[in-house]
Design a protein around this nucleic acid. Structure first.
Lengths: 350, 350
DNA sequence: TGGCAAACTGACAACGCTGTCAATGAAATA
DNA sequence: TATTTCATTGACAGCGTTGTCAGTTTGCCA
């Protein structure tokens, strides 16, 4: 069983190096380096010569070598702990799209927020692979131990939708309070007065902000939220079912319920379907997030559209600007992105 | 506006290097290297000494330096062009989980299959960042230009659910034909004889395989598929709506329709809801994929569960085995994973 | 036309690790 | 005991880039 000598990867078609280009162009490797990095102080003629040689050889700088020699790794990390595929997908897409423009790559790093060795995991990650920046998403972005670890490693980071520790880092967010306020207002405008609310996972900052918006809007209409119509959920489909079950058990039920994310709204709608409660005739239900499922349920879900992809896009943008020496992405910098109330059929005029 | 001298990333808490460990342990860096890589020929005593020093200093080998010096980059790429978040999410999770165990990282690389410069994009990617392996998903895994480019770069790759060029590379798949056969058989068992079918995107191999399974099952029951009940879809929600519209327009309609993926089944159900056709009383509809939405639609969708995460997990496994010099993951190696028919409420007994 | 600053260019030393190979010491063999 | 073998260790040369700094041109001014 003679095993063939293990072919080393990338041995097949030797990729050309900066040396090859330098030789072909008749300049030093340093000059090639300058051209490839668009640095100044290279004569136009020389620059053209080098570019031609590089094209001819299909030369692409080796990222690993660049990272090792220089101060940048051309990689940013996306840290998340979120079981909603569409959320992660959108974030990742947004980050990748921005990074592509600058020759950067995105390393997706799911992390269990409840892992006992979270600090070691993240610290190890940052020591192992020198990221030029990290995008932190909820709930990781609100965990002191996570922030400390990243700060200790000296890696710039931007938080998406942070709740705790305001101003501690650059951040990108949308106005959850305002959005929840407007959605509640929307229900009020439709004529609803008895409006219930399903809160999200207490570890997620958005849960509190959205609840705040709901309460504010109710009070602005001189209404006081009724405690028995405010249920604790966990942002999951199942918790939406549970919330609906307990909310609709008594005889006295609200005419509308604001579930603070789509998944819970879906759970509620499912419960209604099972129990013969008709949405929106018997009850109006609205969500928050505008996940793809919002068009799958029947009736289609009235909800708030978050600019998730753009959130990550902006976060990456801040990181890259900073990596380029611009003074963006400093602690305190915050970009606020707009949301949109999407009116569909799950809430009706009373 | 004096700008503070730009702090280089990672300058804050100087991470310890192999040199520090070597000095502290009183050995050469090469010995530390041996210990960190679990190489043989190090005395137990020395090994322990080094490990202790490494722990003390929180030493983590720099991946970039390892890659540059050695033959491996400890990264594999996941190339995809698929707009379904849950599909990409599951694949990525599967790959990441397997990679974590071996200290590898996953680089997610969406690629536009129709981009005119696809070859350059992928070639450039592989030249820039030396991946130890690539996981190719549909439809990229069936594109000659993609395979050629990756082969030219000498990078090992595993294809997920390939259709064309069988045996050209290692592959992981499930039996689409068999699954579609069983689903069709299931409808037949429920008493349906008039079964329509909605085909998927012709660029995706799965489209053809699933259709094949449907036809086989029909013929096995001595039934011939009726051309006017076989519609061309594109795996999208909208194409499901269109298919339903044209399928249900005439007076003569099937009693069941097999949409070859969930998204199209959702579109059909949506169309039924809009037009007052009751599922499953008036028509049974089944899908394929078991995406999260299958439990969101009403009635819940009867469908085929694909082991998507495991598909990528196995693909990564083949790549890592190969990177470790084992002779797995060679061209021709194929792992076949099981599927599962999930019976829910969208199809009824006739 | 000489002189000096600014623009350009390249030699060379890192970056933090692994591969190679030679040196050392210990164990096994004669 | 002398010799051979093998396990153990380290010195050193890269890997393909970038940063530093010094050297060489060029352009501009008096």
């Amino acid at each position: 069983m003679a095993q063939p000598p293990r072919a080393l990867p990338n041995t097949a078609n030797a990729v050309s190096t900066i040396n090859d280009v330098a030789r072909l162009a008749g300049v030093s490797i340093k000059t090639v380096s300058r051209v490839m990095n668009d640095e100044p102080n290279v004569r136009d003629e020389t620059r053209a010569k080098v570019k031609e040689a590089a094209n001819l050889l299909h030369y692409r700088p080796n990222l690993l070598a660049r990272s090792l020699a220089g101060a940048r790794s051309f990689m940013i990390g996306l840290l998340y702990d979120n079981p909603v595929p569409s959320y992660v997908y959108d974030l990742q897409m947004g980050a990748i799209k921005r990074c592509r423009r600058s020759g950067y790559h995105v390393m997706a790093e799911p992390q269990d927020a409840h892992a006992p060795d979270l600090e070691r995991a993240i610290g190890g990650l940052l020591a192992t692979i020198r990221l030029d920046g990290v995008i932190l998403t909820p709930p990781l972005c609100d965990m002191a131990v996570v922030l400390q670890t990243i700060e200790a490693a000296g890696v710039p980071y931007v938080r998406v939708a942070p709740f705790l520790y305001p101003g501690r880092s650059a951040a990108v967010r949308m106005d959850d309070v305002r959005a929840a306020f407007e959605m509640t207002e929307h229900l009020l405008t439709l004529g609803h007065r008895d409006i219930g609310f399903v809160r999200g996972h207490p570890e997620h900052g958005a849960s509190h902000l959205r609840y705040e918006g709901y309460v504010k809007a109710m009070r602005a209409a001189s209404l006081e939220p009724r405690a028995e119509w405010v249920k604790q959920g966990y942002f999951s489909f199942e918790s939406g079912i549970d919330a609906a079950a307990s909310l609709f058990a008594g005889g006295d039920r609200p005419t509308a319920v604001f579930a603070s994310n789509d998944a819970m709204a879906f759970g509620m709608i499912a419960h209604c379907q099972q129990t013969g409660i008709h949405v929106p005739d018997d009850i109006s239900i609205v969500g928050f997030d505008d996940t793809p499922g919002a068009l799958l349920v029947w009736p289609h879900l009235t909800t708030i559209r978050q600019p998730i992809e753009d959130l990550a896009h902006q976060a990456a943008d801040m990181l890259l600007a900073r990596a380029n020496g611009e003074d963006a992405g400093q602690a305190g910098d915050t970009r606020l992105l707009p949301f949109e109330l999407i009116e569909r059929q799950s809430a009706r005029k009373l």
